[in-house]
Amino acid sequence: MSRAALLVLADGRFPAGGHAHSGGAEPAVAAGRIKDAATLERFCRGRLHTAGLVAAALAAAAAAGCDPLLLDDAADARTPVPALRQVARRLGRQMMRAARATWPDPALDALAAARPRGAHQPVVLGLAARSAGLAPLDAAYAVAYESISGPATATVRLLSLDPFDATAVLAHLAADVDLVARQAAAAAERVATEGIDALPAASAPLLDITAQAHAAWPVRLFAS
């Protein structure tokens, strides 16, 4: 395996469309729940241990070779609001285009054919990681990190937060990212013996509620 492939996959400039999404930061800023670096860090910690953990485990399971269609169904069951299911599929479709161009693999082609409107993004990312020769833990890291780097980057734009402060938030959460990535990879490993229910299903009620509300905003900076 090439460790550099992980840097390519996790690079914010990887052309998979993530920059257009705030991961719930836009409604949180509007509601005053994120107003500075300290409140951004709390928000990110919450997102990482809920939506981030679930997504990281789906990616790790896909990278481990679990059936991506089963994982896509599991992602639906763990995403109770349509706004977030649509976002996950739209991002999945963009990730698929980028991944097929970067690491061509019949497994990616098969998933693209089975889910022409897009599979959930973490499933596609996990499969892309597998195509790139990466390990399940690598895929979990990429997704866990992305679950906080998205809101942090968006908050720089939404609040004119100092980019140094936003980056410091990500650095403060490094141990939490380690923990979540390891939990996700361990859960993915248990799928082989315990079935898909071994994957975590941690929910964040406010992320769900505010994502659905945000989708109806007439004017917004970010798609989600």
Binding site: G46, D73, R78, A201, L206
Partner: peptide
């Protein structure tokens, strides 16, 4: 036979991140 909904919550001591603005505020 298909999973329609799977939701887990973990609150209180030992549940990291639960008492945050992303989860309960």
């Amino acid at each position: 036979g298909r999973t329609l909904l799977d939701q887990e919550t973990a609150y209180g001591p030992g549940g990291p991140g639960w008492d945050t603005s992303a989860v309960l505020d």
